[in-house]
Each structure stands twice: as structure tokens, then as C-alpha cells.
Amino acid sequence: MPALILNALKILFLILIFLFLWQVGLAIRSHIGTGPSVKRAKGGHELVVLRGDAKKGTTIRLRPSGHTIGRSSEADVVIDDPYASEFHARVETHDGGTMVHDLGSTNGTYVNGRRITVPTPAGKGDTVQIGKTILEVR
């Protein structure tokens, strides 16, 4: 078979290879991404992630019935933080104010940098620290 045709076939084959990979790449792009590691909830006030493994600025809308926050997939708000306990804290909204309860976590829950022992109110601009994740009430 003439060299010219073989050369053309070679280039064609390489093009096929890259076409295949290009399509795989496109499919990966539409698939990949770590996905939100903080579930969103509806209604009420908001907690915004300031620092932590979860994407900065991720917003959790607080609902009046309150949610548990922790590393367990059973928690209402799942935070992927090795320093957080499975069920770390509970946040409830009462009459516009937000109450933070520690659920006997190993590393404690901090409101404005102070470890809480009793349910503690947290207003707008206060920070809540769970594990290494810092959230701000907004």
C-alpha cells in the first residue's frame, strides 16, 4: 500500500482518537464538580459559610423548624468537615432570632469565638463555628 495513503490513514486514526477523547472530556465536564457539600434548606434567615471545606459563600437558608448540622449524611445540613461531629449542633429560629444549640459535639460549637454550653442566641453578623467551618448569620 502506498506510503501516502498509509500516512493519511495514520492522521485519520489520530484524529479519531482525539475525537473520542474530546467527547469523553465533554461528558466528564458535564458530570464532574464536587457538587454542593452543604444542602440547601428553605425559608427564614441565612447562614453563610465564611471558611471551611465547603465552598466559601455557600448559603444555607434557615427554616423555622430548625436543622441539625453535622457530618452525618442524616443531618439536615451536611458539612464535610473532619472536625465536626456526626450531629454537631442544632440551629433554630425563634421570632426572628436564631438560637444555636450544641448537641454534645466533640470539638464544641462556638458563637463569636466563645464555646457555648447552653443554647445561645446568634443575631445578624454573629459567627458560628462548627469544627473548622465558620458560618455567619445574615
Binding site: 495514520k10 489520530l14 472530556g25
Partner: peptide, 22 residues
Amino acid sequence: LGLAGSIAVITAYAFFVAVGFG
């Protein structure tokens, strides 16, 4: 398959790793 083919192979492994870690 030359540099082009080798890059294709390495890309495929990179894709596999990307999918796996995903």
C-alpha cells in the same frame, strides 16, 4: 502514534483519575 498518540494515552489516564476521584 507519536507524541500525539502518547498524549492521548496520558489524557485518557488523567480522565480515568478525574472520574475516579469524582
